[in-house]
């Protein structure tokens, strides 16, 4: 059983990194994230004081939007291809399958995003303290973003226009992570990190059950 779970995790990570049928994989959301950091100073002007004040928030919003990009390939292609059916036939619980998908999604995008946040912080002229807090906040918040992404992708799999709907559903669910994560950047706001992690943990605990129920209902 655990051998099968490892095999599924390995396969999920590879497929999500490479992007499966539609291509793209991890690279496109990361490039999107970086390009937001690049164009933002063009739009608001290069005033270092202004950028230092809003730059951290911009990185958080860009990270959230980048997490939405891969939603339509998180669950739907495998539902369409019958992989979930075949795993169910082998007695592998949907809860496990969703938990693994969540881990694979996190592995395929969060480390790359945290790495990309370093040049993004440089482009926005953020100081070392804020950059460190952004990295810690992303470490605490990205598991929650991954969980919401997988849950919503499972719920909208098979729906017409599911991808657009998924993007719309993810945003309000990610608001707590965004508020606490970006709030932690303010002077004296470091306790926001703990609340970001707490929001992530709730979502991590909820998603395997919600996602599995959505998979079963969608058959």
């Amino acid at each position: 059983m655990s051998g099968a779970l490892w095999a599924i995790l390995r396969r999920d990570v590879l497929v999500l990194l490479r992007g499966g049928v539609s291509g793209g994989g991890t690279l496109l959301p990361i490039l999107f994230f970086l390009s937001v950091a690049v164009i933002f100073p063009f739009a608001v002007g290069p005033d270092p004081k202004l950028l230092a004040r809003v730059g951290g928030g911009v990185i958080w919003v860009a990270a959230l939007l980048a997490a939405i990009l891969p939603l339509d390939r998180l669950v739907e292609p495998d539902r369409e291809a019958g992989l979930f059916d075949q795993w169910a036939l082998r007695g592998i619980a949907e809860e496990w399958v969703i938990a693994i998908r969540m881990a694979a999604h996190w592995l395929s995008f969060a480390p790359a995003l945290m790495l990309a946040a370093l040049p993004a912080a440089g482009l926005l002229g953020l100081n070392g303290r804020v950059t460190g807090l952004i990295e810690l906040g992303l470490l605490a918040g990205t598991p929650g973003l991954a969980a919401v992404g997988v849950m919503v992708a499972a719920m909208t799999a098979g729906l017409k226009g599911g991808a657009a709907l998924a993007g719309l559903l993810v945003i309000p669910l990610c608001v707590p992570i965004l508020i606490f994560g970006a709030g932690a950047l303010a002077i004296g706001g470091e306790s926001g990190l703990a609340l970001t992690a707490a929001a992530s943990l709730v979502l991590l605990a909820l998603t395997p059950f919600a996602g599995a129920a959505a998979l079963r209902a969608g058959r």
Binding site: G3, A4, A7, I8, R11, V15, R18, G19, G20, V21, G23, P77, E80, A81, G82, L83, D85, Q86, L89, R90
Partner: peptide
């Protein structure tokens, strides 16, 4: 005993070469 299902959903990764798609199932089955 175990049950195998063959229907219009082939259960293979569309984006991978056939050999790799079958190799995944070989690790399970």
């Amino acid at each position: 005993g175990a049950v195998g299902l063959l229907d219009e959903r082939h259960g293979l990764d569309m984006g991978q070469p056939l050999g790799e798609a079958l190799a995944f199932w070989a690790r399970l089955d």
